[in-house]
Design a protein around this nucleic acid. Structure first.
Lengths: 341, 341
DNA sequence: TTGTAAGCGTTATCAT
DNA sequence: ATGATAACGCTTACAA
């Protein structure tokens, strides 16, 4: 039976420290520190004894204590999103995690659930844990409270929505431009009655997409028609009902959907009605290529977005001091769905 | 211009500490600590001065330093999965995060990419940061190395695959039982030629599912036929090709798929061939209800799995000392797909 | 009600 | 090549 250095601590003995390792190896604490960090030159014999002690005790350096004293930070970053189970956000998370891992950083993830107060709490919790940076898909409209954190060295990158009342790096989709291009394409193909099925416009991206839809019509000399617009369909079911009604009353020949949830509802309605209607949706979706009809989507890669956000964030962490910049990613229009039967 | 307490630190001034707040409020460090933690009774006047100082300086308690001294842990847990962009794993992440947030814990997420060495590195990195527990979907087969961490108080819950050579709480799907039931159902419906399209059997869950398929046939007096089995289709494309070949050579009347990737490939092949074949797949999939044919899936809820894992983990963190337990969740067989045209 | 001193586990500084 | 000592920002005793 070997001697146990630490004292019992509730359940499980407490972790061995460098002091314990030093005692066991018969060297000073500082020598252990040097071995653990591969610092300076250590006599081979000393090194071996220390490493044996580390092995026997199962020592693992406490990085919390380390980052308390050392100039290096916590090697953690935060990611604040709305809902981890949404593939758009988990894609961002994946891309960011890749960049973080490559640099020895770990990612703390938390969901705001679209609640500005929760978002603020989460950011507080992250800062208390001294993350070095945060990638934020903001729910709130007002981010002045971040200023003091940023003054203290916190790096922040906004994704998908711009910051409110504060300067920070931002990574956006070209929501308006891509929507405009898509709807212009429909017009150019001969469509004159192009309906809109949309989620609520309060969301930044959705608002931009609706504006893009209307701009396209105007630019092509058509007048946006409120009877062809359904705005506020937050669920696939509501989008399905809305589309059903549009189909039976206004007889559009094409429908533009501002996100994939609404597109799903619209597809259901169109399939059910066996209607011959062109559909373009913003956002790609899983299995879109298996749909019983062909549709087009404005495809963008959330993982790439996350990677990009990571690059920007780590550039800041590495000391880049340029003024806050805004980058824009343009989605591309692609076909989805199997050949019609 | 107000006085700055901390010294400049690369970029951004360093964060104010309790000492800075104390100096500004004209009280002792300990008084600030008491105010921040809502401890004991503080004179209203003192309290106000301290809070003003906190406000003015933008002070935020350093939880890393806190957890170094206090008996409470880091209030962080780790989640190790294969790939965050896979909805199965992001679902688990979501469920776990809900439980964590409810308790004031944050979740550090990392992807192992199915690499046992990476898994080990990640767990080391998590332990270095002193997470109190880890939920692990293991890639490796051998987890003895976790023993010393668990002896030091780390709580671990295995999800979806059992631990190797170590005792720990485990949460599994009833892979074999659910598969057996599904295939027995097919037999009972009159099917005699039931094909199998499967991913590689090395994965624990897949192996179990294949065994369930074979058991069902045997129990119903049919002999598993290698010519009806395609094992090793790791991508949807390979599953699609495999299914195509099966359809043209062996003419099965039903196909059982061991995960959603293979099911997707099989659906493509069946739709393309316009074949009349019953399909049952393990795992639900996004938009399955929009498929151009009706199929059945063995549905299970990853979010619920994550929540359950969280409950188990936090019970341990809260001090439960029962021997390691194994829990099993049974998927249910449900229909998917729109009515056939 | 408030303050002092020690210590958590590590790194930084300065010796030897 | 190795060690002693202070310090990081906080909490835990223990006073006053």
């Amino acid at each position: 039976m070997t001697a146990v250095a630490g004292s019992a601590n509730g359940h499980g003995r407490s972790r061995p420290t460098m002091r314990d390792v030093a005692a066991r190896a018969g060297v000073s604490l500082k020598t252990v520190s040097r071995v653990v960090n591969g610092e300076a030159a250590i006599a081979p014999a000393t090194m071996q004894r220390v490493n044996e002690a580390i092995e026997e005790l199962g020592f693992l350096r406490n990085d919390l204590a380390r980052s308390l004293r050392s100039k290096g930070g916590s090697r953690m970053i935060g990611l604040v999103i709305e809902d981890l189970s949404n593939p758009f956000y988990s894609g961002i998370a994946k891309g960011l995690e890749e960049e973080a891992t490559a640099r020895g950083y770990m990612v703390v993830i938390a969901s705001s659930e679209e609640d500005a107060a929760r978002e603020r709490d989460i950011i507080g919790a992250l800062c208390s844990r001294r993350v070095e940076g945060i990638v934020l898909v903001p729910a709130g409209k007002q981010h002045k409270y971040l200023q003091s954190e940023m003054d203290s060295g916190l790096k922040v990158v906004f994704v998908d929505r711009p910051p409110g009342r504060i300067g920070a790096d931002t990574l956006l989709l070209d929501n308006r431009g891509a929507s405009r291009t898509a709807v212009e394409t429909l017009v150019d193909e001969g469509h004159r009655k192009i309906a809109l099925v949309s989620d609520a416009m309060e969301t930044y991206a959705v608002g931009e997409r609706v504006r893009g839809y209307r701009e396209a019509l105007t630019r092509r000399g058509l007048k946006p028609n409120p009877r062809l617009e359904c705005i506020g369909a937050h669920t696939a079911e509501r989008a399905e009902n809305a589309a059903e009604e549009l189909l039976s009353r206004a007889h559009p020949t094409a429908i533009f959907c501002t996100n994939n949830r609404t597109a799903i509802g619209v597809v259901r309605a169109v399939v059910r009605a066996r209607a011959d209607v062109a559909i373009i949706g913003f956002d790609d979706f899983e299995l879109a290529d298996l749909l019983p009809i062909r549709i087009r989507v404005l495809r963008h890669d959330p993982t790439e977005l996350g990677r990009q956000a990571g690059l920007t964030l780590f550039a800041r962490i590495d000391g880049v001091t340029a003024p806050p910049a805004r980058a824009v990613v343009t989605p591309e229009l692609v076909w989805r769905g199997v050949e019609p039967g």
